[in-house]
Amino acid sequence: MDWIQILSNSASSIISPATLAYALAALGLAVHFGFAGLLNMGIAGFMAIGAYGYAIGILTFGLPWWAAALLGLVASAVFALILGIPTLRLRGDYLAIVTIAAAEVLRLLFLTTAFDKVTGSADGLFGYHASFRASNPIPEGTYGFGPWEYREVDWWVRILGIIALILAIITVWRLMASPWGRVLKGIREDEEAVRALGKNVFGYKLTALVVGGVIAAAGGIVYALPSSVNPGVYVTSLTFFVYTALLLGGAATVFGPVIGSLIFWVLQTVLGNVLPAAVQAGYLPFMTSIQAQTLKFILVGIALMLIVIFRPQGILGNKKELTFVK
């Protein structure tokens, strides 16, 4: 086995666009689930809206890349309002069902051949990079060292991704350290008590849904920046993977989602490299290399179960501040 290559790939995944995208999505989900106690099971839908909004903005409306990104964010805010207004007055499990259903409806709408000209149906969207690449201030060439050696385009994606992530972290951290965040956490604990104290619970929940949704959509955009938008990505499994990353780090923390996403992707990369290599080297004679790739997803599922059962507060969470809506 080529351990050097495996280590290098894993180290490289620390700032891969996928990791940054997951970190943003998980942070958005932390606002929903960890801080506000909203059971959003449709985070994949928010990411899809961001990604498609960005790509459609460029390809169909001919917007420059930054305006298209803005379009993706605004669209996700509208999506959050449409989901939230009817369901946030209902019991929590209804929100879970409505969000997972809405995300799936959205995916089917992106997938159907009826809108092929706009959405590209099963092929997805690609070839929208011109405006984004033209805006790149970094001169052509390869930069970096060791495992982190990328071309100027790849650096531009990563830099913007990191900027977006830092902005999101500062926003969430500020919000949660403020009286606004205090009300939100109160709502997570018992919304009737907070309502009895004169707070507009519905308004807070709706705002939280929008804020988290916009951050998750930013994750979708970062995911779409370097390559293409593929409807096969935004399935319910994506939502579950983001939950895994979030719970790994700690649901009601600001840095937990980031650390969780990082661990999630580094482990994915390690397993994705080690398992097939082990098969090729004959260490796992009962397995094909395709099966070895599947195995890592089985392990994700098992890991999710183990975290929730044995360390529900995540790696960074405080045991006492363990946060699961009742």
Binding site: T171, L175, W180, G181, R182, V183, K199
Partner: peptide, 10 residues
């Protein structure tokens, strides 16, 4: 500080 935009500015 319980208002959304104001909460961002301590």
């Amino acid at each position: 500080g319980e208002r959304f935009w104001q909460s961002l500015f301590p």
